[in-house]
Amino acid sequence: MTGVISYLVFFLILALILSIAVLGLNLQWGFTGLFNAGVAGFIAVGAYVMAILTGPARDAVFGGFGLPFAVGLIGAMVAAGFAALLVGLVTLRLKGEYLAVATFGIAVTIQLVCLNWEYVTGGTLGLISIPNPARALADGPLAQNTLYLLIVVLVGSLAFWCFERIVQSPWGRMLKAIREDEEAAASLGKNPTRIRLESFVIGCMAMGLSGALYVGFIGYVSPSDFLPIVTFQIWTMLIVGGSANNRGAVLGAIIVWAVWTTSGFVISKLVPTEIQAQGGAMQAILIGLILVLMLLGRPRGLIGERISVSRHARF
């Protein structure tokens, strides 16, 4: 029984951490219509900055400032936001598919930097022994993980609340206006390029936060954690849950992560260890199938966007 509970806690920690990134993507794609194909890259920026800010000092590697957990989280968000600002200034003039190609390239480039800039990122080995704040406060793995889950729930709820406020605000309505008809929005005196950039930066900050929470929990960071498949998982979570609906984003994160971990567990039991690469491939194929079938059969997702009509409209 404790086994089940501790696994459930572990599962929820990761699912909720990922759901924060899904919320960020939801703001970009669901509400603004920006195709960010480089999600993994921005999660990586947050993760590495967290590791550099809160990790212990190391020989021959930059960073290891040993700063508090909260400072790490904020630093990660700022760094991911700054990276998004740079990227956005160059690419957000591009719309639609060109943005997809450009952001895909950014993720590839960020991964290359993580692999090769050893002085900052530790190269292929990555950075290890990042302190987990729950370790210092509780005894035993279950208590520690439960405490970390509380932290994640707290931070996640805060993020959820912020995103709900954002999309219900006048600024949030403006996002939808731009998504639906950019020229009409511009004719009303809005500046679509600037608003797209703001939405892109805020969304990427959430991705950075998600990366930082991940590193704080796992305790190390390495380039192999941020392969393009992560981008893909986040996207599938959003599509399954339903884009342009923050509840859908969280629901999708939990469901897809459940499918991913369960299928991984089943495959590892059934597939002999010699062909483990094939087992991993089956998992990816499953996710790809879910995505394509969802797009074909229920493009709105499980709980899609609610149709909103202005209070002042009369029929």
């Binding site: 195709f35 194909a37 639609g96 598919e97 997809a100 498949i229 893909f232 996207w235 599938t236 599509i239 690469a277 094939q278 991993g280 491939a281 089956m282 990816a284 194929i285 996710i287 790809g288 199938l289 995505l291 394509v292 797009l295």
Partner: peptide
Amino acid sequence: VFASFGIALLLRHLVVL
């Protein structure tokens, strides 16, 4: 565009399989 993303993933991992 997005579906092509999914299909790319499917095709690539089918090769591994």
